[in-house]
Design a protein around this nucleic acid. Structure first.
Length: 237
DNA sequence: TCATTAAATTGTT
DNA sequence: AACAATTTAATGA
């Protein structure tokens, strides 16, 4: 059972801080905001639980309030390909929501997370009525395009250290994931799943990046000291 | 609130 | 894949 198909039963009121963590809430007018808030739902996803599955019709536009999600797809050969992680503050699926198509990816919770959903009908109502919302969505689509192009680059890099660095940098994208801040809560195991390397190799890469002063490794998370250094890792070792 | 124990995460081989 | 060391979370007095 996915969150998508059970959100209407599992919903509860959003707390004030949960509402404040939703980036697009702040671009709405008072009237638009009131309507949107009434239609927002939130649910707790346990580790490994699916938020939505590819092929199913879109019912919600989702955002991460807390936790960490993984976006992936399964190809014809049954292999799973991971595209990106979604940290707090990230909203996704607007492309398919706009077209009212089926989900094109699987979204899975890597650990216990809080996920908010806005019904597609309300999503469309906002598109029809709010200039601010349109700007937000446009900006988001544009930013994500840049990120996916960067992801293609990352995929072609063989060097594990660089892959880890660039993947990390994309998780710290302040436009797409405004609530990450300078500390990202992610375990090395979770990062390994996202990057597609072994935990040992990720650990080695993180140690190297820490030695360069680009990041600081903390228990259960990472602190970015120099985002630019992460982005511009060059092929050395 | 503190001390003890269990669980999670990290660092290393 | 396995292990020990470290950190955090949970428990109960």
């Amino acid at each position: 059972m996915t969150i998508d198909s059970s959100l209407h039963q599992r919903r509860r009121e959003l707390t004030a801080s949960e509402l404040a963590s939703i980036p697009w809430i702040h671009v709405l007018s008072a009237q638009e905001r009131e309507r949107a808030i009434g239609e927002l739902k939130i649910a707790d996803a346990s580790a490994g639980e699916y938020i939505c599955r590819m092929g199913r019709p879109v019912t919600y536009w989702f955002g991460v309030v807390d936790g960490l999600l993984k976006m992936s797809s399964d190809n014809a050969e049954g292999q799973t390909m991971t595209f990106t992680g979604v940290p707090p503050g990230g909203w996704f699926g607007e492309g398919t929501a706009m077209k009212r198509e089926a989900y094109r990816y699987n979204i899975q919770s890597l650990r216990k997370s809080r996920v908010a959903g806005l019904h597609v009908d309300t999503f469309h109502w906002l598109l029809d009525h709010s200039i601010g919302f349109n700007r937000f969505v446009m900006n988001q689509l544009n930013e994500r395009l840049g990120q996916f192009i960067a992801a293609r680059e990352i995929d072609r890099m063989t060097n594990p250290n660089i892959r880890v660095a660039r993947s990390l940098a994309s998780l710290f994208n302040p436009v797409l994931y405004p609530n990450v801040g300078e500390v990202l809560r992610i375990t090395q195991q979770e990062l390994a799943y996202l990057v597609g390397l072994s935990r040992q190799r990720v650990n080695e890469a993180l140690t190297a990046l820490a030695a360069q002063g680009a990041i600081q490794v903390e228990y259960g998370g990472l602190r970015v000291m120099d985002l630019q250094a992460l982005r511009s890792q060059v092929n050395f070792k």
